[in-house]
Design a protein around this nucleic acid. Structure first.
Lengths: 224, 224, 224, 224
DNA sequence: GATGAATGAGTCTTCATTCAT
DNA sequence: TATGAATGAAGACTCATTCAT
């Protein structure tokens, strides 16, 4: 489970005068990052389980096995941990998506799309807690968070909509309202993830069956 | 708008004496119901706007223009209003759905489905605040609430899945994993509602265009 | 069970012009007194059972079967009912005590004392709820009430102490610190009443056995 | 003064790291105990003065000079302080009572009883507030508290009754209903304590005079 | 860095009392 | 006189955050 993007750990001010022995500072940084991870993991588990509001700082401290003050040494507030978790997770998802390459010689667009989907599903599967948080809690927490998540989905929709339009231009897809269909596709995905990844912890093959089903559903529809 | 389950109304002090002037008691009951509505409306607006946790009882009092005690005269707790709102809304949605009639002479199933969809969309459109609450807040509030909403959606999925299987048996639809496709359809719907009803307050025609688009998407798919 | 001293009922302003038919006003007064009694009885039962603070006005209304406003038509406050009950009860007890008659030809002092005691015990037995209230709740409610009850007991102590000193002067009793002994006697009585009247609802004979036991205890002591 | 049952102290966060400076932890514990005492003392004073219900948490905070949260750091609720105070006081009283030793060579039983009495009176004298609370407030607060206090007195009565029966068997005391007489004795004691210790803050000699008086009263009675 | 006692603003809820009908 | 909806002051308790050690 990757834990990228800890700005405080990497960007901290390192007083050079103190670095007597090479490696001392880096050891401190490593410890600091460890602590941070400890907190993040505890918070993630609890947020996913009980929700944001029903998780108290006290709960996190207990779960992480640290003291109150220590928490505030690493995060500014309870909300900061939440944001950190969400930002990181969104980044991880974003980084899984490759733009569809339409140059000659590249794999067929459909294959590329399925690969994107598959990579994203892998990330979601590997962190069910965060997936649950993203789908259940992140919306409705507060204007700021709503905006962030909405922005994320908007970008996804733009991507999907673009792909649809490209498909139409290429004569692969029938004409349709690309915005609406992109939304429908995104919604399908969310719902299916909720059921197969968050609620049941489905095995890889099962998830792949589900992916194929909704892809076929999206492409061929239900008739006949 | 139905006003179910008012404990105070049923358990309240019933005047043992004779109803002096005809209509005096019924007027009191009407006023009582009005007050209740006043509170519900205030709470609904605020919950939709700020979320459950960021709405204090104080906010509701202010919005409704009543005193603290008055609130508790009509509802047991902040949570009770929320539950009341959600329960009532779910009931309203449920009541819009008619089982598809496959007897000879009945309208084609597809038409019936579209009518169902249209009636549900009307309810959702007519109460954007509650739609927003249902889609954003009700999940992730609390185990109890989660269970209630999950149960609602589960019933919807059963309905959809059943319809799909029937369509398959009737040779109208191609074979597919009805559970997965039902989820996909539900997800599409949710997402589309979120965009066109909750975010933008789309006009009726716009909504109908959207309905047609996702129905066609679901039935014909994207190819060709 | 006597219900004396309702100032509002007896002292109420009666507009003479209204008294069309003789007896109309008195009927109103009777009804008023009845209502008052209704409230008193409900309150007494509840105060005895649950204590003053754990009895709400709502409880009293329910028990008495009247409406909120009606309560305040008869009593100024919750506390006023309590005071009314206690005052009345203390009066009833006081009225049972006759000063010991030492004139020649009168019954022996000891017999008079036992008669006093017996009459008081009858009152206590006949209203266990008020006895419980007096012994358990009236002390410690509040400065005012404490003062009232303390004043009552002080008068009792003065009476007892006077009797003791008289007995000493008459050569019947041995010299002793009359104040202390009066207190001891009062305390014995209270405790015994608590056990035999409040906790168990002892029959008359049992109570008389108890009276004889503590009288003998007080007079003869335990030695030999 | 014993400080039993501090849930926060035992369940608190125990520093997992090494105790850097010898005594640092124990100093923290000492400070913690001090705070607790501070709260207890403030609460005791106020409960004794104004009663349980007329003392608000706010009052206690003011009197103790601490903040709201600090109170709840040491006690679960207002009621918890009260219970803690009463439990501790009852324990202190109980611990003063030694079973009467009737083996040959032991001091005469009467002397032992007087010593017990004297020790108990010392405890009561040394904490007038708690004595007042025990005699005035603890009864009538609540079923739970009533039961606790009643149980305490029941044990005292058992002890006294047993002593009386032993005295009778040894031929020292005349036959009597030991239960009734034990109650009378307990009641005498309570009343006398109320007057001489709670109301007036009598000096030691005065209290001893009172003890002697009621002992003589109990043993020799009043006749002659 | 790590600790955890202290803080106090903020929240929900109760309930005695008032008053228009 | 009787009613009961409305009131709002007052209460207990929580919990994210700070800071001295």
């Amino acid at each position: 489970m990757k834990e990228a993007g800890d700005p405080a750990a990497s960007g901290g001010q390192v007083p050079s005068s103190v670095e007597h022995v090479d490696g001392r500072v880096s050891r401190a940084q490593r410890l600091r990052a460890q602590r941070r991870q400890q907190v993040r993991q505890a918070a993630r588990r609890l947020f996913a389980q009980r929700g944001y509001h029903d998780t108290s700082i006290q709960d996190i401290l207990q779960e992480a096995g640290i003291a109150r003050g220590t928490f505030y040494l690493h995060f500014d507030s309870k909300r900061a941990v939440f944001d950190d978790l969400v930002d990181d997770f969104l980044d991880r998802i974003r980084s899984m998506v490759r733009r569809v390459d339409t140059s000659p010689g590249a794999p067929p667009p459909l294959v590329q799309i399925e690969q994107n989907l598959s990579r994203v599903m892998d990330v979601l599967s590997s962190d069910r807690d965060m997936t649950r948080i993203l789908l259940h809690l992140a919306q409705g927490l507060d204007k700021d968070c709503d905006a962030k998540v909405a922005d994320f989905y908007d970008r996804v929709l733009l991507l999907l909509g673009g792909a649809l339009e490209q498909g139409q231009r290429m004569g692969l897809l029938r004409p349709c309202d690309s915005r609406v269909v992109a939304q429908a596709a995104l919604g399908s995905l969310k719902e299916v993830v909720l059921h197969w990844i968050v609620r049941r912890d489905s095995a890889r093959e099962e998830v792949e069956h589900v992916i194929r089903e909704i892809l076929r559903f999206a492409l061929e529809g239900l008739f006949r």
